[in-house]
Amino acid sequence: MPSLRKTLVAFAAIVMAAVWAFPVYWMVSSSLLSNVTLSRSTPTWFPAGGTLSNYRAVLADGRFGDALWVSLRVTLLTVFVVLIFAFLAALAISRFKFRGRKSFVLALLFIQMLPAEGLFIAQYKMMATTQLLNSVIGVSVLYIAAIIPFTVWMLRGFVAGIPAELEEAAQIDGCSPTGAFFRVTFPLLAPGLVASGVYAFLQAWNEFTIALVIMQDPVSRTLPLWLRAFIEGSRAREIDWGAVMASSTLVAVPVIVFFMVVQGRMTSGLVAGAVKG
């Protein structure tokens, strides 16, 4: 009975999809409900009659704005510097042969694997000594260094995909070297720069471990630390889950949207060599 088997397989796939999507659905659904509704003994499966009052309460509290502002500054500074530095390094390793190239690539790949916990005590001490604890600059410097290696690796693929001959051809046709770069290479590289930029954005925006150590002062919290403060606060008082889920949604939704943009490229970068076998 192949048709029965096919139906069962499809059913299993739908159940799996439901299980994986459920937590995100539950977050959004709970964020629309009042704390009274959420405290009932039976769960409310559909947020019929839900309101945005949780969001209003969260946004009215100044701490969200503060954390958003810190996160924005840290993320933008990080993305900006990472893109420039990683682009230059990617040009070097994909367009030049030079002594030390292989060691540099090797170092990047290993650094990219290092866990933040392996260095954060020393980084904390360094920032404490240089008076950069709780500062946007301090945490950004650590983020930039952590994100550069994989970004270089990602951009290297894009740069290598554009033949240098294209640029030379443009110059033979009368373009200046700068003109050839901006009219030929740069437009072709734009998708790569966007993908790398979004990757760097996601890393900096979501980062928790380094921020936890460096940004301990409540006023210099990034958004992930702001979200954690609700969880930590539960020891002192009952959690207002409606408000916390609204907060989670505010943190998660922009990220989910951005993530969809780059997902394909990130996966292929990580396992490209393996798929080709």
Partner: peptide, 12 residues
């Protein structure tokens, strides 16, 4: 559904 779970920030 998988992408949704993957994209969710870890703190959320």
């Amino acid at each position: 559904a998988m992408l949704l779970a993957w994209a969710t920030p870890v703190t959320a």
